[in-house]
């Protein structure tokens, strides 16, 4: 049996001023598999995060829905919360009820509330299907190839090399310097280009 926790954020009045957040939480609590459906003023704040961690531990939740802002903003934040609570960070799904709901449907609170419910139901459906994922690790060869030995390539090569890293500076012409070495004085200071 899936053990889902749903955490709905007010984002102050950003969501809470449009969407009936406690009403949504009550509605979502009725979905099968949802063991915990609760709301809080700012879910990303420290008390908000602690609330999630406590619920994960108390209710032995194994997957989490956070309904708040765009995942493009806070997905990493909440993945870390899951990790801190001992869950796989990829057992998270977010419902975007701010950018995609309260902020654009502010004039119709009822419709916004209904849409928020639908968006959270989507997230619950997805989270039910999630499986733990594990990041793979690959080594890094500490050496850089710079293609082109003009001003851009030389400058990049020097900046990298000055930090102690090895650089290969490749140039197709017999000599480096590119177009810049052809120039006489350069604006706006009129100093030489060598």
């Amino acid at each position: 049996m899936k053990r889902i926790g749903v955490f709905i954020c007010w984002c102050g009045s950003n969501i809470g001023g449009v969407v009936d957040v406690p009403g949504v939480a009550a509605e979502i609590a009725g979905i099968s598999g949802v063991l915990c459906s609760t709301d809080y003023k700012y879910m990303c704040s420290e008390p908000g995060q602690d609330k999630i961690i406590k619920a994960i531990k108390d209710d032995h939740l194994d997957r989490i829905v956070v309904a708040s802002c765009s995942p493009r903003l806070h997905e990493t934040t909440f993945r870390k919360v899951l990790e801190r609570a001992g869950l796989n960070p990829y057992m998270l799904e977010m419902a975007n009820i701010r950018e995609h709901c309260s902020w654009v449907h502010a004039s119709d609170k009822e419709a916004a509330t209904q849409k928020a419910i639908a968006l959270i139901k989507r997230a619950v459906a997805k989270v039910s299907q999630l499986e733990p994922l594990f990041a793979s690790h690959i080594p890094v060869t500490k050496r850089t190839l710079v293609v082109g030995g003009g001003i851009a390539g030389m400058q990049a090569a020097l900046d990298i090399a000055d930090a102690g890293q090895e650089v290969l500076l490749l140039e197709r012409e017999p000599t480096i310097g590119g177009k810049m070495a052809m120039l006489d004085k350069t604006f706006p200071t009129l100093d030489c280009s060598a």
Partner: peptide, 25 residues
């Protein structure tokens, strides 16, 4: 400065024929 830098190896009169692999490798 680029030519004399101990960490820079100059490869002049060279072409890049092929690139394989991925970030870091």
């Amino acid at each position: 400065a680029a030519a004399q830098h101990p960490q820079i190896k100059l490869l002049t009169y060279c072409e890049l024929d092929e690139v394989n692999g991925y970030i870091g490798n």
